[in-house]
C-alpha cells in the first residue's frame, strides 16, 4: 500500500503506526501541517490532540503524559524548539519517552520560514541544561519522515529518553510516495516507573532531582552509560564511497542534493561518493570512518559548519582535507554549487 503524501503528513502517519497516544503542540511554520494532520486524525482514533498555549506548555504536557506511561509527540521549529529545551532536559533527566519533530527554519532569532539546518548543535549536543543527550534521527525522504518517526518512538521507549526527528522545510513540504508501514509498533510495559493512578504504580516517582551530590552524580553516570549503550543504534547510508577519491557528506535534504551531484560527477568520470548519517545522535562514527577514512571530504550543510565540526570530531584521519559548501538564511544549496566546490577539490584548486 502506498500513498502520495507530504513529508509533514507522513510524520503523523508514522506516529499513528508507532502507537503515539497524544499530540501536544503550538503552531509554527513550517511545522504546522504535522499539527493539522494530528488534529484531523488523532481524535477519530481515540488519541488525544491538544493545541497548547505555548511550546513550554506543550513539552510539559508531554512530560505529564509520559509520566503516566503514554506516548506523546510534538512538532515545532526554530523559536518553538528553543522554548522546549528546558522540557527536553527534564524529559532526559526523568528518563521519559517522548518524540519531538523539529522542522528546521532559519535563525538566529525570528529568521524566516525557509529551510536551514542551524538547529544541529541544539539538537545533537543537548540543547537544554545538564549532561544529557537526545536521540536524533535525520530523514531525507518522505518515506523516512514516516519510518524514522516510528524509529524515534521505538528508541525513545527502549532507552527511556526523548528522541528528536530533525528535518527541515524541504522534507516537510515535499511530496513523495510513501509505502505504508506493515504493522503497529509493539507497546512496552512501563509499569515499573510510570504513575498511572493505580495500585501497581502508586509507589512510583517521576522526577529528576537528587539533592545529594553523590546521588546526582550517580544518576549522571548512569545516564552517560545509557548514552554509551546507544552506540549500537547508529544508522548511516554509504553511496558509492568505496572507490571514491572524494566523499561528500550531508544529512537531511542536503543529502538529496548531494546525491544528484554525485551522480553527475560520476557521469563525468570522477570517483565521488556520499556518506549520509541517518542517526545524528548516536553519531555513526564507525560507519563514517570506514566510508571516509583516508579520503578528502566535502561537507555540505545549510548551517555555519555545525555539522562539519562533528565530522572533524569523529574523523580519525587528522590529515583529511575537509571542505565546506554551505548556505544559510533559507537559501537551498544548488547542485551546481556542490558540483563546483567538489570539482575544485578534485582538481586540487584551493
Amino acid at each position: 500500500m502506498r500513498k502520495f503524501i507530504k513529508g509533514n503528513e507522513a510524520v503523523t502517519i508514522g506516529a499513528i503506526y508507532a502507537g503515539c497516544d497524544a499530540y501536544f503542540g503550538y503552531p509554527i511554520t513550517p511545522a504546522s501541517e504535522i499539527a493539522h494532520a494530528a488534529a484531523m486524525h488523532f481524535p477519530p482514533l481515540g488519541k488525544e490532540f491538544l493545541q497548547a498555549e505555548c511550546e513550554t506548555a506543550a513539552i510539559n504536557m508531554m512530560y505529564g503524559a509520559a509520566a503516566a506511561g503514554k506516548l506523546s509527540m510534538s512538532a515545532s521549529s526554530g523559536p518553538g524548539m528553543s522554548l522546549m529545551q528546558e522540557g527536553m532536559s527534564y524529559l532526559a533527566g526523568a528518563q521519559l519517552p517522548a518524540v519531538v519533530v523539529d522542522i528546521m527554519r532559519t535563525g538566529p532569532g525570528l529568521g524566516n520560514i525557509g529551510p536551514e539546518q542551524g538547529d544541529y548543535n541544539q539538537a545533537v549536543k543537548g540543547g537544554g541544561h545538564g549532561n544529557y543527550r537526545t536521540i536524533v534521527l535525520a530523514p531525507n525522504s518522505v518515506q523516512e519522515m514516516c519510518d524514522l518517526t516510528i524509529k524515534c518512538f521505538e528508541l525513545s521507549m527502549k532507552y527511556r529518553n526523548p528522541a528528536l526527528l530533525l528535518a527541515d522545510a524541504v522534507l516537510g513540504q515535499m511530496m513523495e510516495s510513501l509505502t505504508i508501514p506493515d504493522g503497529m509498533l509493539e507497546k512496552q510495559d512501563f509499569s515499573s516507573w510510570s504513575v498511572r493512578g493505580d495500585a501497581v504504580t502508586r509507589k512510583n516517582l517521576v522526577c529528576s532531582i537528587y539533592l545529594e551530590p553523590d546521588l546526582q552524580e550517580r544518576h549522571n553516570w548512569m545516564l552517560q552509560e545509557k548514552y554509551e549503550s546507544m552506540r549500537c543504534e547508529t544508522m548511516a547510508e554509504n553511496y558509492l564511497c568505496d572507490d571514491a577519491d572524494l566523499v561528500l557528506t550531508a544529512y537531511g535534504s542536503c543529502s538529496r542534493i548531494c546525491r544528484s551531484a554525485v551522480d553527475m560527477l560520476r557521469d563525468e568520470g570522477f570517483k565521488v561518493g556520499l556518506f549520509r548519517p541517518i542517526s545524528l545522535y548516536p553519531f555513526p562514527e564507525e560507519e563514517m570512518n570506514s566510508a571516509m577514512g583516508g579520503k578528502d571530504v566535502l561537507v555540505v550543510e545549510l548551517s555555519n559548519g555545525q555539522y562539519r565540526d562533528d565530522v572533524r570530531l569523529h574523523l580519525r584521519d587528522c590529515d583529511a582535507v575537509i571542505g565546506l559548501a554551505n548556505r544559510m538564511g533559507g537559501n537551498l544549496i544548488s547542485v551546481e554549487e556542490v558540483l563546483s566546490k567538489a570539482r575544485d577539490m578534485l582538481e586540487g584548486s584551493p
Binding site: 497516544d21 497524544a22 501536544f24 488525544e48 491538544l50 497548547a52 513550554t56 506548555a57 510539559n60 504536557m61 508531554m62 512530560y63 505529564g64 503524559a65 509520559a66 509520566a67 503516566a68 506511561g69 503514554k70 506523546s72 498511572r196 493512578g197
Partner: peptide, 11 residues
Amino acid sequence: AAVASGLVRAI
C-alpha cells in the same frame, strides 16, 4: 499545571 494538563489527558 501544564504537566497536570498532560496527565489528565493521559489518564
